[in-house]
């Protein structure tokens, strides 16, 4: 369906304004002084830019600690899930064995499973292992691959010609070397997609850290931000400044890897076919 150009552009611009406005309000609120905040109605452009909100928000709660914790978790989970998921995807895409299709189908089916069905027993497992209030429950599962990422990487590996593997094998390369030296370098776009998904997912993660972390020095940014709301909820300008600290890294990552990211989403939609 092709509409006239002017109408299309008008609609595109109109929607853009609608989508950007809440974010622009956040930015404007984050740089307002408390005095200006009290004036109703609010103005989008502040009379005076109060940069001091950011250092204030950063230090009233230990945001440096929250950020370091979240970065640690995010990096460990991303490395773990990329390595394990690509190995599993390699197994599913290149090896013939009985029961493979059955296991693969089972894996796709688990994507529909609501996590609440396993949430409580998993909590009991980590409690029995005395791992509550540690990072183990939040990182170790990442090393056992993720169904969505296996699916995406398998799709990619299937598109790599098998002749490459066979040629390497004739040169005496083992399976692990084929994975690491042939498939992985070729799969950089797919790996980037998965890594970006994983990064944003972990950075955003709220429920799991809320369940497993108790002491504030272990909090992630998401949980810390929630604590910020509890403590300084009345100071909207500080809450918005703190929220921006949470939002900014995902936006930066998104801008850097947008192409891969959008492609990955489009591919995951093909899972419905």
């Amino acid at each position: 369906m092709r509409l006239t150009k002017a109408l299309v552009l008008m609609l595109l611009i109109g929607f853009s304004i609608a989508f950007a406005t809440p974010l622009l309000w956040t930015v404007s609120a984050a740089v307002k002084s408390p005095q200006e905040f009290a004036i109703a109605p609010e103005r989008m452009i502040p009379q005076h830019i109060e940069w001091g909100n950011f250092p204030k928000a950063w230090t009233v709660l230990p945001f440096s600690t929250f950020v370091l914790n979240t970065l640690f978790l995010t990096v460990v989970c991303t490395v773990g899930t990329v390595l394990s998921s690509s190995l599993v995807a390699y197994g599913f895409s290149r090896f013939r064995f009985k029961g493979k299709d059955l296991v693969f189908g089972l894996m796709l089916a688990t994507m529909m499973l609501p996590h609440q069905v396993t949430m409580i027993p998993n909590f009991m497992i980590w409690r029995a292992l005395h791992a509550i209030d540690t990072f183990y429950p939040l990182t170790i599962p990442a090393f056992f691959s993720s169904a969505l990422f296996v699916f995406l990487l398998r799709q990619f590996f299937m598109s790599v010609p098998r002749e490459l593997d066979e040629a390497a094998m004739l040169d005496g390369a083992g399976y692990i070397r084929i994975w690491w030296q042939i498939l992985m370098p070729l799969a950089v776009p797919a790996i980037t997609t998965v890594a970006v998904f994983s990064f944003i997912g972990n950075w955003d993660s709220f429920e799991a850290p809320l369940i497993y972390l108790n002491s504030p020095e272990k909090y992630t940014v998401a949980v810390g931000l929630r604590m910020f709301q509890d403590t300084f909820g009345g100071n909207f300008e500080l809450v918005m400044a703190a929220s921006l600290i949470h939002i900014l890294p995902t936006i930066i990552i998104f801008f850097c890897a947008q192409r891969y990211f959008l492609k990955g989403i489009a591919m995951s939609g093909m899972g419905g076919r």
Partner: peptide
């Protein structure tokens, strides 16, 4: 040998599935 390697490579998912999904499902 190929079949064995296939199972070894997908074992992370299978172990994770048994420990963090199937077992917990029955427990819940």
């Amino acid at each position: 040998r190929e079949a064995l390697w296939g199972w070894i490579l997908i074992s992370p998912w299978i172990i994770g599935f048994l420990c963090f999904t199937a077992g917990p499902m029955l427990t819940s």
